[in-house]
Structures are given as structure tokens and as C-alpha cells.
């Protein structure tokens, strides 16, 4: 499919520059809301881990603690991972996705819907990954954390924010553009009424003298 060169280019370098400025401007607000985000994600992840009899909660220093649910068993495992800096990097997708979606070339109403969808999807994915990592860490690394796989498993949460951001943005780009026939040119803009075609007066052709 060929791209119409007359249409404005979407996701140009100018778009990237605007997104960078918006993201940097939003970072202080993101930092302020990290405890709230953590609370939501931990609750979501806690629901998942409680299904397999494991408790997950945040410590005061910003790290996460995962432990077997209290019970009669004497062999109760527990481990702490992460930290304040790590937590900030893990939830970065919550700042990146709204900044990207807010600059989508679409009407404000559509953007707001995408924003809600995007933030929800990111929180769900973050909770799922944190829950999964916690369970795996407790089962595989509670006795010894020296194995490189244990470090990788905990460390994967940081680049995971890039995975969720990318997947959510690409998914929403595709879903949002569903009703558009020419979605390559991002027809999410409100449709402009077609201008009546007025044929230009053709100049009279003068016949060459023989």
C-alpha cells in the first residue's frame, strides 16, 4: 500500500520532540504519584499471588516483600527485592503511555478514551508481571539469591516498563484506527467535508494555422 505524500507525516521527528518535552514535564508529577501507583499495582499483584498462597506487600523503604501466607507450616519463606529507585523505573510506563497517547493525532475525546484504556492496560500488565516475578522469585530464589537467573528475574521488571509501553501503544494505535479506512494517514482527525469539485476553466486551445 502506498503512502499518500500529500498527507501530513505522522510520528515525525517533530512529534518525537514534543513527546520528549511532554514526558520530561510530566516526570515530577509521575514521581509524586509513584506511591499511589505502587499501591494499585501491589493490590492487583496481591490478588494474583494470593491465589497461590503467597503474600506480597510494599516495605517502608520502597522495596517489595514476598512471603508464604501465614499458616501452621513451620517452613515459611520470605524475601525482599527492589528498592525506591527500582520502583521508580519499573512504573515508568505509567508516565510514558499517557504522554504518547496524548499526542496521538486524533480528536480529544478519542485521546481521552485511549488514555483511560492505556493506563488501565499498563497497570494490569505491571501487576501481572510483578505478581508473576514475585511467585517465581520466592519459589526459585528464596534459599539463595546468588544465581544469575535470580538477579535477571528481579531486574527484568525495569525493562518490562518498555515492553508494556510499546505493546500498549502499538495495540491502541491499531485498535483506535479500526474504523478508519485509510489508517496509514491517521484519519482519526475529524473528517473534513469534501470540497465540491469545481473544474477549472480550460483555456481555449488555439488552433495552429496551417
Amino acid at each position: 500500500m502506498s503512502t499518500d505524500s500529500a498527507q501530513p507525516r505522522v510520528f515525525s521527528a517533530w512529534w518525537l520532540a514534543k513527546a520528549c518535552v511532554l514526558t520530561v514535564a510530566c516526570l515530577p508529577a509521575y514521581l509524586a504519584s509513584v506511591p499511589v501507583i505502587d499501591e494499585i499495582v501491589i493490590r492487583g499483584a496481591g490478588v494474583l499471588t494470593s491465589c497461590v498462597g503467597i503474600r506480597l506487600h510494599s516495605e517502608m523503604d520502597g522495596s517489595w516483600n514476598v512471603a508464604d501466607a501465614p499458616g501452621p507450616a513451620s517452613m515459611r519463606r520470605s524475601m525482599t527485592f527492589g528498592g525506591e529507585q527500582f520502583r521508580r523505573m519499573s512504573y515508568l510506563s505509567v508516565a510514558l503511555v499517557p504522554c504518547t497517547l496524548l499526542l496521538f493525532p486524533s480528536p480529544a475525546r478519542v485521546r481521552l478514551r485511549l488514555l483511560l484504556l492505556g493506563v488501565t492496560a499498563v497497570l494490569v500488565l505491571d501487576a501481572a508481571m510483578l505478581g508473576m516475578s514475585s511467585v517465581l522469585l520466592l519459589h526459585l530464589c528464596a534459599d539463595s539469591t546468588s544465581a544469575s537467573s535470580c538477579r535477571n528475574m528481579a531486574g527484568i521488571l525495569s525493562p518490562w516498563s518498555l515492553v508494556t509501553s510499546l505493546a500498549v501503544c502499538l495495540l491502541l494505535l491499531r485498535v483506535a484506527l479500526r474504523p478508519c479506512r485509510r489508517w496509514k494517514t491517521l484519519a482519526l482527525r475529524p473528517p473534513t467535508p469534501p470540497t465540491p469539485a469545481t473544474p477549472a476553466p480550460r483555456p481555449e486551445r488555439r488552433r495552429r494555422p496551417l
Binding site: 510520528f11 518525537l16 520528549c20 520530561v24 504522554c99 510499546l166 501503544c169
Partner: peptide, 15 residues
């Protein structure tokens, strides 16, 4: 290092 550059690199990847 840990926040701004990380965010901008992620943004470049998304873009």
C-alpha cells in the same frame, strides 16, 4: 541517568 535518560530512550523506542 535513572529517570530522564531512561524515559527518553523508552520514548525513542516507542516512536
Amino acid at each position: 541517568h535513572l529517570l530522564v535518560a531512561q524515559a527518553l530512550m523508552s520514548l525513542l523506542t516507542i516512536w
